[in-house]
Amino acid sequence: MQELIGGGLVVAAFSALPVAAQDQPEGGYGAFADTAVSELVGQNVLSAVGDNVGEVEALVSADGAVLAVLGVGGFLGFGEHDVAVPLTELSPAEGALLLEGLDRETLEAMPEYGGEGEPLAMNTTVAGAPIAEEPALPDATVIETPTE
């Protein structure tokens, strides 16, 4: 499938994705609409069998869908390349994200992500709502008590 995203031609390997990902609802947030972008970026991504297949490098909005840019392949950061998969393909797992539809070999064979789309701000939810900053704590006052 070829698709025009952000002015550049992307030849996507989405044909390897389950049908549900190809027919994703408007927004393409999956289970993450109310999740802070900053909570997802940096998360490890596991395959259906529990193998670590990459890490979320960024989330981008492209053509009404949210894509997770994953760093895959390589060893200790060398030889790694970025690929984009619909966020709807990921689901929360304990301490990581689960990518059931693709394995390591398929991800490594996907074309490199070329920077299409608009990056989501780290201080918003995936759906775009701003995240309220926690109020700063007042400076602590030290009270000395007399010792006997």
Rank of each mutant, 00 (worst) to 15 (best):
Leu4Ile: 01
Ile5Phe: 07
Gly6Pro: 00
Gly7Ile: 00
Val10Leu: 05
Ala13Val: 04
Ala13Met: 10
Phe14Asn: 14
Phe14Gly: 14
Ser15Met: 13
Ala16Trp: 15
Ala16Thr: 14
Ala16Glu: 15
Leu17Ile: 09
Ala21Phe: 09
Ala21Pro: 07
Asp23Ala: 14
Pro25Thr: 03
Glu26Ser: 10
Gly27Gln: 10
Gly28Asn: 04
Ala31Thr: 10
Ala31Met: 13
Phe32Ala: 03
Ala33Lys: 09
Asp34Phe: 13
Ala36Asn: 09
Ala36Ile: 09
Leu40Gln: 06
Gly42His: 01
Gly42Asp: 06
Gln43Arg: 13
Asn44Met: 14
Val45Asn: 03
Leu46Trp: 06
Ala48Pro: 10
Asp51Phe: 12
Asn52Met: 13
Glu55Met: 11
Glu55Val: 11
Val56Gln: 02
Leu59His: 05
Leu59Lys: 04
Ser61Thr: 10
Ser61Asn: 11
Leu67Thr: 02
Val69Ser: 04
Val72Phe: 01
Gly73Ile: 03
Phe75Gln: 12
Gly77Gln: 06
Phe78Gln: 12
Gly79Asn: 05
Gly79Ser: 06
Glu80Ile: 08
His81Asn: 05
Asp82Leu: 10
Ala84Ile: 01
Ala84Glu: 01
Ala84Met: 01
Val85Arg: 00
Leu87Ser: 00
Thr88Val: 08
Glu89Arg: 01
Leu90Val: 00
Ser91Val: 02
Ser91Asp: 08
Pro92Met: 05
Ala93Leu: 10
Ala93Gly: 15
Glu94Ala: 14
Glu94Tyr: 11
Leu97Val: 02
Leu98Ile: 02
Leu99Pro: 07
Leu99Arg: 04
Glu100Asp: 14
Leu102His: 06
Asp103Trp: 11
Asp103Arg: 10
Arg104Met: 13
Arg104Thr: 12
Thr106Pro: 00
Met110Asp: 07
Glu112Gly: 11
Tyr113Ile: 03
Gly115Ile: 01
Glu116Thr: 08
Gly117Glu: 01
Gly117His: 03
Leu120His: 06
Asn123Cys: 07
Thr124Asp: 06
Thr124Lys: 06
Thr125Asp: 09
Ala127Cys: 08
Ala127Ser: 15
Gly128Ser: 06
Gly128Asp: 03
Ala129Asp: 15
Ile131Glu: 07
Ile131Gln: 10
Ile131Asp: 05
Ile131Phe: 04
Ala132Trp: 01
Ala132His: 02
Glu133Cys: 01
Pro135His: 05
Asp139Thr: 13
Thr141Tyr: 05
Val142Ala: 13
Ile143Lys: 15
Pro146Asp: 11
Thr147Lys: 12
Glu148Phe: 14
